[in-house]
Amino acid sequence: MRLSTLEFYIRETLLSLRRNSLMSLASISTVALSFLILGLFVLLVINLNHLADTLEAQVEIAAFLDSELAEEEIGRIAREIKALPGVKESEFVSREEALERLRRQFGERQDLLDSVEEMNPLRHSFEIKAVEADQVKVVAQEVAKIEGVAEVKYRQEVVERLFSLTRSIRIAGLVLVVLLLMATVFLISNTIRLTVFARRREIGIMKLVGATDWFIRWPFILEGILLGLLGTLVAVLILSRLYDWVVTSIYSSLPFIPVLSPEGIMQPLTLLLLGLGFLVGAFGSLLSLRRFLRV
């Protein structure tokens, strides 16, 4: 391709954008809106995953032991637990330590515990973490089978609900994203179709003076790509402002909710969205050119 041809394409593309400024603006806004929703969605899913990961790390299985156990028995149980597949770590909590924790939780009202001080009713236990949260149930069942383990408790419901929630959000998200992308492709292809229509005279003349098909197509493809990229750019700008604001407000008012910092995710997200915007634009215009640019 000659440099002067490229220059010609760019001039034609800009001219066409300006000539159909209202329509271009409409499609840029819609692309922006779609990608904004898409971006918000990605951020939500990433953060939910992060939340799930954090919670996963906190999820513990508590295995309470029989009351009268010798030291070596406890050692054997510790080894057996460690040997189970899916166990990330396990920690022995003696009954004295358990009482100590209880004390800390009661804070001011130590008096309530005074009576139990003499004959500690608590049991020795192991606090076990699974490698992955969806293994918690299996691990708990295995631990319960170990001899000397009296009872096993874990936060089954919380874990399972969180997981079914993230799963359904991921699926819903995927469906939504696919629908949005399709809508965006459709929109861009429609815009390009209208531009092709608006310039049919010019296209006819180009054909008559011997323009090749690709020479005619390029400005439209560039236009589609430009629409896609501009829309995405707007979305990315809004998105990064919005996310900055959300993160700052959460940090200051709800610090215990783990959110990912903007620095880490906005850059790859921006690249991802721009790449997607490029593809959506190119695909959208190719789609309409295939259907509407026949001789």
Binding site: T5, M206, G210
Partner: peptide, 9 residues
């Protein structure tokens, strides 16, 4: 235009 279309120098 007719010359640009045929990519004349």
């Amino acid at each position: 235009f007719a010359m640009r279309v045929v990519e004349a120098p």
